[in-house]
């Protein structure tokens, strides 16, 4: 099957599933969260509005993303599992082609969500009247990190959704991932790096100081952890290749 056909076929299969509603709903939720955070914002808060968002949203991503990706991957893969279509599909499409295109299809929704989140941040700035200049470079970095970590988490979810006859396992892993990712943010950095789902918060551009006496929050910039980034990237590629190799050996 030709490449453009593979992509078109994947979209045709999910025509009535309205999967775009999943990232959209999570984006709306994210916006409400931000709106709630800034409902009583004073001049000091507005002067560091973007900084605050770029610090807080990755934490929220830790909770939302693993489950959102589990839902998307499960919705897209379950149709093949429930329908028992794999045997038939392999007569017209190669196994690795099927695996890659299915993954890219899920990735498309991750991309939509990431772009949406990247646009939601300046949108919040406009709505709530942030006086801080938009840190465009940090915003791009935020979107890139979200895409990268999301893609690695999606690798796990995609693999589990295709391998499990019962979708409870990938959803359970997604739920546990959310839990572990969130808790890992309170761990010492060395321990937190052992939790895959916690990487949504591993590349925060800012650290936070909270003065107990004055009750004032202040942020300071943190250097980009290049080594961790490269290692994570390599890990992500190896994980994808490993999962793909295991799936290709699966008897249908």
């Amino acid at each position: 099957m030709k490449r453009q056909h593979c992509a078109a076929v994947e979209f045709r299969k999910e025509r009535h599933l309205k999967i775009y509603l999943v990232p959209l709903a999570f984006l709306i939720l994210l916006f409400f969260w931000c709106a709630f955070s800034f409902r009583n914002a004073d001049a000091y808060d507005l002067a560091q509005g973007y900084t605050y968002l770029l610090f807080q949203i990755p934490m929220l991503n830790c909770i939302l993303m693993p489950v959102m990706l589990a839902v998307i991957a499960s919705r897209l893969c379950d149709m093949e599992i429930k329908g028992g279509t794999l045997k038939l599909l392999y007569t017209v499409q190669s196994k690795h082609g099927f695996y890659d295109w299915k993954y890219l299809h899920s990735f498309f929704y991750l991309l939509l969500f990431s772009i949406g989140e990247g646009l939601a941040i300046p949108f919040c700035g406009k709505i709530f009247g942030f006086t801080e200049a938009l840190p465009a470079a940090l915003l791009l970095r935020h979107v890139g990190i979200l895409l990268l970590v999301g893609a690695v988490v999606l690798t796990v979810q995609h693999f589990l959704s295709l391998m499990s006859a019962n979708q409870i396992i990938p959803l359970l892993v997604g739920l546990m991932g959310s839990f572990l990712g969130l808790f890992s943010m309170y761990f010492p950095p060395a321990a937190a790096r052992l939790v895959l789902w916690g990487y949504f918060g591993a590349f925060l551009p800012f650290g936070m100081d909270w003065d107990k006496d004055t009750r004032i929050l202040s942020f300071y910039q943190v250097p980009f952890p290049t080594t961790i980034f490269v290692l994570f990237l390599v890990f992500g590629i190896l994980l994808y290749l490993f999962c793909r190799a295991v799936f290709l050996k699966k008897e249908v």
Partner: peptide, 16 residues
């Protein structure tokens, strides 16, 4: 009829 969607809704509902 989806297995996953109600779980996503529950997480969204929890945050809401």
């Amino acid at each position: 009829r989806s297995f996953a969607l109600p779980i996503g809704i529950a997480l969204g509902g929890s945050i809401g």
